[in-house]
Design a protein around this nucleic acid. Structure first.
Lengths: 133, 133
DNA sequence: TTGCGTGCAAAGGTTTTGCATGGCA
DNA sequence: TGCCATGCAAAACCTTTGCACGCAA
């Protein structure tokens, strides 16, 4: 296990996450947001921190053919995001969790009828959320 | 409607598609494949042709967070790929079509229970296909 | 002859890497 | 003091664009 230090940069990025728990964002979005608050954090540093947060399961990373850059999204601490797939709104970019019993049905159907072993990580359904449709 | 010419480059790319109807590939893959056959086609030209093929519905384009580049996949001429979502094997990259009655169930469930209007274009389920699992 | 298609070079955008310096514990 | 974290510059990639020339019809 590696030691980690608490730094100004990390705190700033975590503050961003705090304010954007519901939204998807790119590294650039974080950079811009912090700059608007006169908080200078190098874009490289943001990439490095977001990647670490992803590795430790605090963020998930996703990307679709229309996206020009990778998007990150906060993951609820106790919502096990390996257990369900996600829905992404094409308009606002928000991620929704398909946490319901139907999830199991999908998984079983794919296995039985299509011999396909679903992996939730990376699986994204695109569409429009209630507010955007 | 725009005129189109039949050219050596287009033919070469179509020949690649012919041989790879089942696989996902990047522009670079096509380029490499043709070079190995001593067929010189500029990478730019490949991008331009693949994009046109996509616009005319012959190819679909997809990308996940793990992909470093956009992938293209041949679409069956009469299989309407707007009607169903796709499954992608994480190992071999192949795309499978979820063409069955269950597709409607998924769509309806998302609408009714989650107020989410599914759009098949861009929606990709990731996992392992029969051969790779 | 017309104008679509192609090659080449260059630019654009995102993400990564190397290296020296900064700063937490 | 040790070593993780950061900033900066540069590079690595993928993809797009501009422009002149090639070539199908």
């Amino acid at each position: 296990m590696q030691k980690t230090y608490r730094t100004r940069c990390k705190d700033s990025i975590m503050a961003y996450l705090e304010d954007n728990q519901e939204n998807s964002f790119s590294a650039y979005d974080v950079h811009e947001y912090l700059q608007n608050q006169d908080i200078q954090v190098n874009l490289t540093t943001i990439y490095r921190n977001l990647d670490k947060l992803m590795e430790s399961g605090i963020l998930m990373k996703h990307k679709t053919a229309e996206d020009e850059s990778c998007k990150y999204q906060y993951v609820k601490p106790h919502g096990n995001c390996q257990d369900h797939i996600h829905m992404k709104c094409r308009k606002c970019g928000k991620i929704f969790h398909l946490e319901c019993s139907f999830m199991k049905e999908i998984s079983m159907h794919l296995q039985k009828e299509h011999k396909f072993t679903l992996e939730c990580s990376g699986s994204i359904l695109v569409g429009l959320c209630e507010q955007c449709s």
